[in-house]
Amino acid sequence: MRTSHVKFYQTGTFTVGNRLLSETERSVQSTLERTNALNSGHRACQGCGEALGARYAIDAAMRATNNQLIAANATGCLEVFSTPYPETSWQVPWIHSLFGNAAAVATGVAAALRVKGRTDTRVVAQGGDGGTTDIGFGCLSGMFERNDDVLYICYDNEAYMNTGVQRSSATPPTARTATTQAVGPEPGNVFGQGKNVPLIAMAHEIPYVATASVADVRDLEAKVTKAMSMHGARYIHILVPCPLGWGSAPHDTVKLARLATESGLFPVFEAERGEITDRRTIRKQVPVEEYLRLQRRFAHLFKPVLQVDVIARLQAAADRNIRRFGLHGQGEL
């Protein structure tokens, strides 16, 4: 096949392969061979972080497995916007069963592949934060503890977006959702609740756990590729901003993901068998306010009066992450 070099002109983003790199180091998305696992024509909103994250993640997983991949999907935005015929967008064998069982369905797929001797074919399960940290948590933990040969990817947009932005156990404190309204003496989601599933995944001592965001899709691709080079239970937790639920501009999706990581609110790290092996250090810490201001879900922190104390609590949480995960390059978990 004749190939020609594709030139990319985007600057200031990490989203497309960098033409300054050698061809072998370029991103999956920059190659003509990319599979477009999640093809165009689906029904996601403009600026959807989940669609972006899913395409990069599954394309990378397909490249890592020579396209011998099966995907199991939880109910949620990703399933709904990608499947209605004739607009189904999946270029990969794909099954959706229920909201809370994607990890278990993937376990079944992996077991069948094993008995069928199809050792070259691998399985990925994927879901949003609701399907992962809440309703699918039992099945996820079961898959982890059995060390089933599944990569589970959580696209975390920090609420139940598909049903109209309700709070999940991944919703951050103070965020306004349809069930944590911006009213009363403590508007938005409360402090002191929620769970950190990457850390819980690590507690299962599974082979690989990583966090990533759509701000650094090269890092995301690398982590998916690494995960697919391993066997057993693996977990990648990807922060995917949601313009609808966060009340942000569609063109700010990547920017917000970057601000989340650069502020320390969303630590990006890797862990193997329960121990952190790498983290993405922050070059220059951004105040959380910069991240919060771009999102209407936090608007009540700024109007009618600036909630200095509340913002300080969020800043303290970000600072703690930086200390705890060594995001300045020196801390320890």
Partner: peptide, 15 residues
């Protein structure tokens, strides 16, 4: 719930 879900995944993969 997981028992039947695993069976669903396995059956759809031909087992």
């Amino acid at each position: 719930f997981a028992a039947l879900s695993v069976a669903i995944g396995a059956s759809a993969t031909g087992a």
